[in-house]
Nucleic acid binder design. Structure first.
Lengths: 229, 229
DNA sequence: CGACATAGTGTACATTACACACTAAGAAGG
DNA sequence: CCTTCTTAGTGTGTAATGTACACTATGTCG
């Protein structure tokens, strides 16, 4: 027993709630557990924190190990630490969350997990531990965040059309949006650059392609501009 | 060495950033550390999590032990876990925060701390560990929360005048507010009950006393009403 | 009873949000 | 090449909301 302490310590883990978007709607990335407890059960990817890495680094590492996903922008969600949430003993979990494009990110099963797959957020399988609660908190956070921050842009290809952007927001906000009002609002935000290019190979009038200007966005954000959509 | 594990574990602590309000402005509750490291340095109250208590219970317990403060409404803020933030080794801290009335909550030094005192948030002393950063994150959270949730009501006596409420918001938002617009806005929220009473013992026209209707507020909140002030 | 201190009230104007429907461009197929 | 189909792209009027602004009312105290 190589590691001893004067007082007992909880185990520390990180979990990653990864939301993905495709034409069907909002998805969440889950893994099938390969070990006990809850073997064979679906769960949110995550694992133990190493002593020399930050919490976010740990989350990023576990996510890549278990799903192959890398370089997503992770944000801290909440820390779950009630006694009894893990049958192995006291485990405290710092949960992170992110939004990605589903199609751009094919997932593979990896080391610690039997397999990884996307599930509709509205209809998830039964989950291990208190992961149903974790998913709920994350979904709540996503909903409230979408309203006042332009998270959506991360989910599109670098160059995208306004219709694609609108479709994305309609899925995230789960309501139809008026085209003209949406375009007015988005253009007024002043964070899109017209690339001068248009869509290729479409069987109808090609739409203009825009690009998100992150630098400009961060500038405006600092000066307190309201990014409500 | 009574507690042994197969893998090393970080120590887990909780910290409480307690904001208080008095007529001078926004304050934060700090303790003077009685032990090493950073002995004699001011710090955010907190301590180690016991194995059989939830994170929030731990925060509440440490807060009472170190400052005498109890039954405040704590909310989870953020979890700080970078390696190197504590010279004793890897320590992960789940930070909580709360708003209280300063005058209603005289603080005493207690067990783990030499003394406890309120400091102006804008002009804190040099703080132990990465507590300056923790305070900054908490202050940021407070500022953004005040805008869209009626946190202020917690800080007033059960029965209060609209002028007191306005003064409170002026301090929290750090800007003057027009009296008529403020009253209109607040009354439109429809969460105040007219008690029928008025102030006593004031050397001028006595103001009506109102009470915050928490039940009504929670009802409206669930139905998606906007509580921006 | 006059001076003083705070309570309490309404309106006009500017800004923003929202509802709403047609023309434009390009591809495909006969 | 002309018609049809599909999506792109655009403006205006109206309602709702936000904001600026100044006076009267009520009580205490000297």
């Amino acid at each position: 027993m190589p590691y001893s302490y004067d007082y007992p310590r909880p185990a520390l883990t990180v979990d990653c709630v990864i939301f993905g978007l495709d034409e069907d709607g909002l998805k969440v990335l889950l893994i099938k557990r390969g070990g006990e407890p809850f073997r064979g059960c679906w769960a949110i990817p995550g694992g133990f924190v190493d002593m020399d890495e930050s919490l976010e680094q740990a989350a990023r590492r576990e996510l890549e190990e278990e799903t192959g996903l890398k370089s997503v922008y992770l944000e801290q969600l909440y820390t779950f630490g009630d006694p009894g949430r893990d049958p192995r003993g006291r485990v405290v979990t710092v949960a992170y969350w992110a939004l990605t494009r589903v199609l751009a990110e094919p997932v593979r099963a990896a080391s610690d997990a039997d397999s990884a797959a996307w599930f509709a957020v509205d209809d998830p399988p039964k989950l291990a531990f208190d992961h149903a609660r974790v998913l709920e908190v994350a979904h709540e956070r996503l909903r409230s965040k979408v309203r006042y921050q332009p998270v959506g842009f991360e989910l599109l290809p670098r160059d995208f059309t306004l219709s694609q952007l609108q479709q994305l927001y309609e899925i995230l906000l789960d309501r139809p949006i008026d085209k003209r009002n949406f375009r007015k609002r988005v253009m007024d935000l002043d964070v899109l650059v017209d690339t001068g290019e248009v869509q290729q190979d479409v069987a109808h009038r090609a739409a203009k392609l825009y690009r998100f200007d992150r630098r400009r966005y961060e500038q405006l954000l600092r000066s307190g501009v309201n990014f409500e959509i």
